[in-house]
């Protein structure tokens, strides 16, 4: 899975309120047994939740950062965010789809309709398209 992020030239960073020391042991004791060679991205520590606070994901009652993920573009602008309560895991396929869509939008100036996948029809916004989307795209 990480190879797909590399192919899109995306840097992945993970962050929790655990210390970097705990990250090391988690890598060694568990993650390296789930993923060959361990998880390859930097594992960041947000002790005290100050960074989670800035991103709106720090849960003070529990003292942890909840499951939030942010796509940041090369101009350092946040393009997308998704925040879940802890019980439900993420969908990396949807994350990859969104990255591909944003990369396409930045490269071409086109926009991607609902559910867009690479190769699907895109739209070029402008006065000529108003009221005519139905001619080019149907859900």
């Amino acid at each position: 899975m990480h190879k797909e992020f590399e192919d899109l030239d995306v840097t992945v960073l993970s962050m929790s309120t655990d210390s970097h020391f705990v990250h090391k042991i988690w890598q060694e004791e568990e993650l390296s047994k789930m993923v060959d060679g361990g998880v390859p991205f930097p594992m960041l520590s947000d002790g005290g939740g100050k960074i989670g606070d800035l991103y709106g994901v720090y849960e003070e009652m529990a003292g942890v950062d909840i499951r939030g993920r942010f796509i940041i573009d090369p101009d350092f602008v946040i393009r997308a965010m998704e925040v879940l309560t802890p019980e439900v895991g993420r969908n990396p396929k949807e994350l990859l789809r969104q990255i591909k869509a944003f990369q396409h939008v930045v490269a071409t100036g086109e926009v991607t309709p609902s559910g867009w996948e690479p190769g699907d029809v895109t739209l070029t916004p402008g006065p000529a398209l108003v009221g005519k989307v139905w001619e080019q795209w149907k859900p």
Partner: peptide, 28 residues
């Protein structure tokens, strides 16, 4: 502060990745 497998402990500044697409994932 960060742990990077194969590198060890280091400090990571988010803006040092400016110019690349970044995915930042928080987890509990």
């Amino acid at each position: 502060n960060a742990y990077v497998i194969g590198e060890g402990f280091k400090q990571v500044k988010l803006s040092s990745y400016k110019g690349k697409w970044i995915v930042l994932c928080f987890y509990p």
